[in-house]
Design a protein around this nucleic acid. Structure first.
Length: 579
DNA sequence: GCCGTTTTCGGCCCGACTGTTTTCAGTCG
């Protein structure tokens, strides 16, 4: 098994954890963690970069030493430092760090004092009341450990889909805004950065009397548990299991607090360093110079004082946005109102919940100029996929329906299955009657990388192919991506004038942010498709736009921001390469 | 172990809450 980027990142993170338990130089392990984060963030496999002769020490946070370590790891499958560390401390100790309330110091004490090397041994020691015998540990800590182990066993620590988190977050936010004494309230964190999943909710509140408001929020009726509650910070767990951190700051600190709690952590660290280099101190209360407040009431004021333009939350991942801001090279990000239509939807003809007319009216209600109907083809039997005859009838129905609309064009398409050998599931004779063809893989997801890539490239070579839907097939938290050589897929997309989809279903968001960004950088056109199976799902478009923004895309990078006339030209069959 | 708008050496982000303490360490975000 070739070494993947996440193998490298995981190895460095485990090494950092072990060194921290072993009380090594904290700055050295931070360097390992930074390197892990850099490796994890690379859109291309490190092994390919090495094969191409690239110098890893040019990556941020990776110097000559770590570059050498990574190279040897890719060659041998062993990280020498990790082997040495596990000789001194059992690797299982790192599992203790996953328990809330246990950090490196306590893990070390539990190991040294009681020989504990696993969560099971920890639970037994707690039940036997041995933990309270250790210095620095008391009865409450012992009980908390048992509670956290039990909670961890019952609830998977999985992150919550952004769309699911919204259903809990928005009512909570409305409720907080109605509390007396509350001035402003907003949700920050990965929710505001529009990550596809969130670990918890970070709510920023401003109030003249923070302490009163901070205590008041514990009375929200969806609260399952008050984890902590102080003068300015309250941590809750909602009944759905989602953790919520509520920070209450004085009015003038709103911008600084929003910036601080929006993160990401890496973006904040980079910005605080920038502040420090200019003689400032940056925290959640503001930007300070010698105790004097320089900025903080708005985010813009914070960035401006650091000689930067405001950076959109979706970009704040320390993936080059600060350098881009410095060089006045931030992208003009796509907005929801740039979207002029939707090219991937289903009707009752296959597995949708509404018929053609209902979907068309819903599209018109949303102000779109065009709607592409793309039901499944026959291979997807569970979805009642269309054969040639049924698709031919739908084409006639769409022609008739188009007479009824002045401001909306209904486009004829089909989400055609890409069979195992790369052939399409319907004959050319019927596909030629469509406005455009969408290809998608729904079967044989486990093919090896080379075979899967060849299969997709074969389908992309079909002259009628225009869009590849949900290219990697992943389902967030459920199923990983199919194995593909994306660089070759990008090349084929450019050569054959094919757009790659950002599927806007909250569970898919496929391509993901980093792959979509790499696609655009390679010159590929993207398209945001809702894959809607009902009128309500047309509103998933906003999730697709959010993901596109995280991918640094502008409106011009996205096919369905074009007016219908331009779109038809781009989708026209028989477009030749370079045309 | 990395890195440079003060530095090739000497720094490395910063504050809140809890529990076990008698003044603060550990953890978390």
């Amino acid at each position: 098994m070739p070494v993947r980027n996440r193998d490298i990142a995981n190895a460095f993170e485990t090494l950092a954890d072990l060194l921290e338990i072993g009380e090594a130089n904290p700055f050295r392990l931070r360097a390992y963690r930074n390197a892990a984060s850099t490796v994890r963030d690379q859109s291309r496999p490190i092994r390919d970069m090495l094969a191409a002769g690239e110098d890893l020490s040019e990556l941020p946070g990776i110097g000559d030493d770590l570059a050498g370590q990574i190279e040897r790891y890719v060659e041998t499958g062993h990280l020498a430092g990790l082997d040495a560390a596990t000789d001194r401390l059992p690797a299982g100790l790192t599992a203790l760090l996953d328990i809330n309330g246990i950090g490196p110091k306590r893990a070390h004490a539990l190991y040294e004092g009681l020989g504990i090397t696993s969560v099971e041994a920890l639970a037994k020691a707690a039940r036997d009341q041995r933990i309270r015998t250790l210095p620095g540990f008391g009865e409450k800590t012992e009980q908390r450990i048992l509670y956290e182990i039990d909670r961890q066993a019952r609830h998977s620590p999985a992150r919550t889909l952004l769309a699911d988190a919204e259903e809990m977050a928005e009512p909570l936010l409305d409720w907080i805004r109605q509390r007396s004494g509350v001035d402003q309230a907003a949700i920050a964190g990965s929710y505001r950065r529009r990550r596809e999943t969130v670990g918890d909710l970070d709510v920023v509140v401003t109030a003249g009397d923070p302490a009163t408001v901070s205590r008041a929020v514990t009375h929200y009726d969806d609260v399952a548990e008050v984890i902590s509650s102080g003068e300015t910070r309250t941590t809750l767990r909602l009944r759905g299991g989602l953790q919520v951190d509520i920070r209450v700051v004085p009015d003038g600190a709103y911008g600084a607090a929003m910036h601080y709690f929006t993160g990401s952590r890496d973006h904040n660290i980079a910005l605080r360093r920038r502040a420090q280099a200019r003689g400032f101190k940056l925290n959640e209360y503001g930007l300070f110079k010698d105790e004097q407040t320089v900025a903080g009431d708005t985010e813009e004021s914070v960035y401006k004082s650091l000689s930067l333009p405001w950076i959109a939350p979706e970009l704040r991942e320390n993936r080059g946005e600060i350098e881009a801001a410095e060089n006045d090279a931030l992208p003009g990000l796509i907005e929801r109102q740039d979207i002029r239509g939707n090219l991937h939807t289903h009707t009752t003809a296959s597995d949708g919940k509404a018929d053609l007319a209902e979907m068309a009216e819903a599209a018109q209600d949303r102000g779109w100029g065009y709607l592409g109907i793309s039901d499944h083809s026959r291979a997807v039997r569970v979805a009642h996929g269309l054969d040639s005859d049924r698709l031919a009838r739908q084409i006639d129905e769409i022609d008739a329906l188009n007479e009824r609309f002045d401001d909306l064009v209904i486009l004829k398409s089909c989400e055609v299955d890409i069979l195992s050998d790369g052939a399409l599931d319907l004959p050319d004779a019927i596909l030629e009657r469509l406005d455009y063809v969408i290809g998608a893989i729904h079967s044989d997801l486990a093919l090896a990388r080379r075979a899967q890539t060849e299969r997709l490239l074969e389908a992309m070579a079909h002259p009628l192919m225009r869009i590849i839907a949900h290219p990697t097939g992943r389902l967030i938290g459920q199923r990983g991506p199919i194995a593909l050589d994306l660089d070759r897929v990008f090349e084929a997309a450019i050569d054959n004038h094919i757009a790659l989809e950002i599927n806007a279903q909250p569970k898919r968001l496929d391509l993901n942010d980093q792959d979509a960004r790499a696609a655009r950088d390679a010159g590929v056109m993207l398209v945001i498709g809702t894959d809607a199976h009902s009128p309500a799902q047309l509103d998933f478009m906003r999730h697709g736009v959010d993901q596109a923004r995280r991918a640094w895309l502008s409106a011009s990078d996205v096919l369905n921001t074009r007016p219908v006339g331009d779109l038809r030209k781009l989708l026209a069959p028989g477009r030749s390469a370079g045309g």
